[in-house]
Amino acid sequence: MKKAADDNIVRFENAGLRYGFGPEVLQDVTFALAEGSFHFLTGESGAGKSSLLKLLYLALKPTRGVVALFGRDVASLARPSLPALRRQVGVVFQEFRLLAHLSTFDNVALPLRIAGVRGSEVNRNVTELLAWVGLKDQMKARPSTLSGGQQQRVAIARAVIGRPKLLLADEPTGNVDDRMALRLMHLFEELNRLGTTVVIATHNVSLVERLGHGRLHLEGGRLTLGAPGGAGRPDKRPGAEDAAGSSGLGASAPGSPGRGATIDARGVEPAHPTAQAPVREWILKGVP
């Protein structure tokens, strides 16, 4: 029925979650994500997207069922072993959650510093990535002085700087224009091509449809469209919320892969030279 546990970077089995003594906001969630897959997580507001992501970035443990990350049951993990696991997960939070007292540069550098990367390497990587997301001139700026879209790009840069194995993004393109949204999506796709498993929660249905990829859909805390054992079935389209305004995405994407969502079952694909040179260099060089 399932692939070997090793192939699935994420596995949920009848996972349930409740906050305090409240109702279950996630119920019987069962799915698995193959390593190197790319999924959109959709659902109406309040459906539980952010909550599901919280389970993935180890902010919470499920109150019921099993959540396994990188082949390890989260419930069985001792607290001191969690930070190392969290470093393999890059997160773009819905509210960005940038550190107000740190500059753009220091915010993006934080994951590297936490991981103990050398100063010169931190400088090079952060500078390159910030240039690529168009924040070269805001390196010293505090988050509060940045526009919403700029803050979002800082948040994304912070999430990907450590080249995580699993990249989670909660509505990462909500505050940027179409061109930037597409650029960021291509960054995610490029990272995905190099093996990063990606999950993006979004309301932006047109983006989801144009880019393809696998799809997880939540309705009232239940998964109505999932990826059992990593075999995504990207057919059903809940047209409940349609972001009609965000058309034009994907059409002009340079080297848009146009892959089907079934890609997630195939795992890691060889890298395509689609991203712009600097970021490709940055991605390929990698960070210890």
């Binding site: 902010a59 930070p83 190392a84 997160v91 939070f93 007292h101 994951p111 991981a115």
Partner: peptide, 15 residues
């Protein structure tokens, strides 16, 4: 600094 502490915690900072 609750927010900063929590974010650092969530992006993998050791205690």
């Amino acid at each position: 600094h609750h927010e900063a502490v929590e974010v650092m915690h969530l992006i993998g900072a050791q205690d």
